[in-house]
Each structure stands twice: as structure tokens, then as C-alpha cells.
Design a protein around this nucleic acid. Sequence first.
DNA 1: CTCGTTTAGTTAACGGCGTTAAGTGATGGT
DNA 2: ACCATCACTTAACGCCGTTAACTAAACGAG
Lengths: 221, 221
Amino acid sequence: MGIKERREREKQATRQRILDAARELYVQEGYEAMTMRRVAEKIEYSATAIYVHFKDKAALIQELCAHDFLRFAEVLNKVAKVKDPVERLRKMGRAYIDFAQEYPTTYRLLFMERRPAEVGTTGPDGPEQGNPEQDAYAFLRQSVQEAKDADCFRPEHQDVELVSQALWGGLHGLVALHLVMGPEDKWIDMRPLMRTATLMMDLLLEGLCKPSRSGGATRAR
Amino acid sequence: MGIKERREREKQATRQRILDAARELYVQEGYEAMTMRRVAEKIEYSATAIYVHFKDKAALIQELCAHDFLRFAEVLNKVAKVKDPVERLRKMGRAYIDFAQEYPTTYRLLFMERRPAEVGTTGPDGPEQGNPEQDAYAFLRQSVQEAKDADCFRPEHQDVELVSQALWGGLHGLVALHLVMGPEDKWIDMRPLMRTATLMMDLLLEGLCKPSRSGGATRAR
DNA sequence: CTCGTTTAGTTAACGGCGTTAAGTGATGGT
DNA sequence: ACCATCACTTAACGCCGTTAACTAAACGAG
């Protein structure tokens, strides 16, 4: 009696086609282009067909976010094998910037757009909040915790949450400024993102770590 | 023959009423609430009357931005009297966070919303680009330049633009994260903005400045 | 004084948006 | 053979930004 299963599979396939079309529109033409009507047009359905699969546009976006949050966490976890927690933090920073530069519109969706609701409490196959392999912030916090436990940090920097947020915020600010200003803003001559980000990580980690550490990064010439 | 002048004054007054209504809507109810129709309704005009005074919605927003950029620069310039450039940078950071917390929606408008065009090249009474009293970034860059000229920085940090953007980006990232996540995000337990920002400034300035400087800030207990 | 011009404002309309209500038609179970 | 289900469609509503055509008042010039 695989009939019901087949129907269910077909429904999920359509659902997936909606998600794919939405993501493609968003990535290629930006937030404003991701219209219910245009998504539907892309898969040759009527606009209202989407509402069979998603409660509303927010739910559709939320599902896109959940998926991309997971992918983002996967990318960051590529440096999980690095033993030294401080060195790992540095590499996480690089991976963070790489991701932002490779998928700028996705980065926008995840961290710069008005959050539809909470992204953490997603139902099916969303990122498991607190699991470092699926939750990028949890992974960051874990590395900071390890650095602290390994006694890398100066005694005044013991608040893991505070340190994590400073590191994240520092990089996020640089990315956000670059994304919001566009490449050719006449107001400000933006330095290359990776350069500023490297400086940011060097300064923050140098200030966080005990002076004994011989600064894992090559100093800017 | 003050007739023409009176007419012109009346027109400017209406124009100003439009701007005020738009700003009020934006500040109190956010970006989405600032529609042409609602702005018009607020001043008891028809929606299309706005187009007599502004080319389109983007022009209206641009003018709001130009005004608020100037106000923002004024706020930052309150610390201009501080002699020591590094101490001034620290105080600028505080003023920056204060502004963001006092006028969160304005901050959004200035630094987080999709830029309608360039904000620098505004016509009448917009911020004069490059003038530290009217252009907050120019003011930041000037202070960084002074700090460098006063030999406060380590020899490897000579790129004024790079350093300015790192300082700005660091604070902007923290503000942006706080604004995008809302006060009660279940995903992340955000530390108070001013605490993270203070840590950010301390770490960055400590890393930028020569170790000889006895660190103007009280160390976090 | 009158006539023509200018102009701040109006109403009506267009196309696009998200979303709801009602209908349709194929499919599968009984 | 009939009925129920349900993925999907069409029609419509109330928003949005914006344009076109019109109105009416005020002014300058003859």
C-alpha cells in the first residue's frame, strides 16, 4: 500500500520545488524579488498553491532560514578539527568571512533581515539549538569556553557569552557594513573585507589572550 | 513684494510637515508603517500630494536620512573637545552606543536599511561629506588620524582607513545584532549592549595602542 | 478688470503585493 | 458506483507606490 507514501512523496517534492524556487529568487534577485507570485510563476503554479504547503510567506522564509542556518553551521564546523581553541577561533573567523563573501544574500537573510519570528524553535530538521554541529553560535561559544578552560584568556575575560558576542559582533559589523553599502559607495572607501576582518580578529584575540601566547597570526606588515 | 516668498514659505512648511509625519511614523511604527498613504493621512492630504514635494518615496527617505545623519554627527561631535585622541575615540564609542539605544529606529534607517542611493551627495543642507562636524565617519577618521600622528598606535597600525573601519564595524556589529534579534530572543542570551561595546572598545584600542599607554579605561572587574 | 498661467492639491486608475474564499477535478477507498 | 479527500485554480479584497487627468485658487500682465 505504497500509494499514500507516493502521494506524500509527491507533495514533499512540490514543497521542495517551492523552497528551491524561493531560494533561487532570493539569492539571485534579492529579498524584494522573492514574491509569492513570482515563486509560483517560477514553478508554473498559481500563487495560492503555495498556501497548501506553507501557512504564509513568513513560514516559507523561516524554512529557508532554518535550512541555511544549518548549512552555515556546517561550513563553520569544517574547522572543528583544529585543536588549539584560539587558533580555531581565528579560523572560524576566516570561514565566517568566506561564507559571507560567497553567499552574501544568504548572509543577509540569516543575520540582517527582520527576523520573522524565532529561528531556533523550528520544527522538522531545523538547527538543533545548542548543538555545536548545527548551531553556529553554540559552536563559537564552545570554542570560547575551551579557550577559557585551557587558560588562554586573561583573568578579566571570563564571561564566555560576553566574549563570544564581542567576537561575533565584530565580524558581523564589518560584513554588514560591506553588504549595506555596496561595493562602490562614494561616501566611504571601504577597505577589503578580509583585511579589516583579519585586523579585527587579531586585535580582539590579542587583547583576550594572555600576553604569553606568541600571537598565532602573522602581524600585518 | 513678499507674496512669492510667503508662498514659498508655505510650501516649505507643508514639505516639512510631510517630513515630520514620515519620521514620526518611521520612528514609532517602523519602516513598514511609513507608507505614502499613511504619511498623507497623517497630515490630512491625499497620498499623491506628496509627489508635489518629493520625486518619490526614495527621495523622501533620502531627505530623512540626510537630516538624521547630520543630527548623528552632531551627537558624536559632543566629545570633540576631548584632547587625547584615544580617550576621545573611547568616548565616541560610548556616544555611538548611546545614540543607537536612544534612537534605535533612526539607527536602523541610517545604517541597516537598504540604502536608497548615496546619502553623501545630497543637495540642500545634507551632511557635507568629509567635514568632521557634519560627517560622523570623517570625524572618526580624523580622530584616528590624530591618534596616529600623536604616535599612540603601534607601528603596524598605520592605515587610518582600516583602523577606522575596524572600530566602526566592531560597534556597528554589536548594535546591529541587538536590533535585529529583539530584546527577548530565545536563541541567544544577549549580554547588555553597553557591556559588550565597552569590551569591544577596550580590546581594540588596547591592541591598537602602544603598550606604553596605561590603558585609559578601567579594566573590567 | 479680465484673461492666461502657474501650481498645490484632488480623484481615478494601474499594476503588483500577501492573503482568503469558493470552486474544481482527479484520485483513491468503500 | 458513489463519496471523500485534497492539491490546485480563479476571483476577489485591501494594501502598496506611482501616473494621468483634472480642479481651483492665486498671481502677473494687458
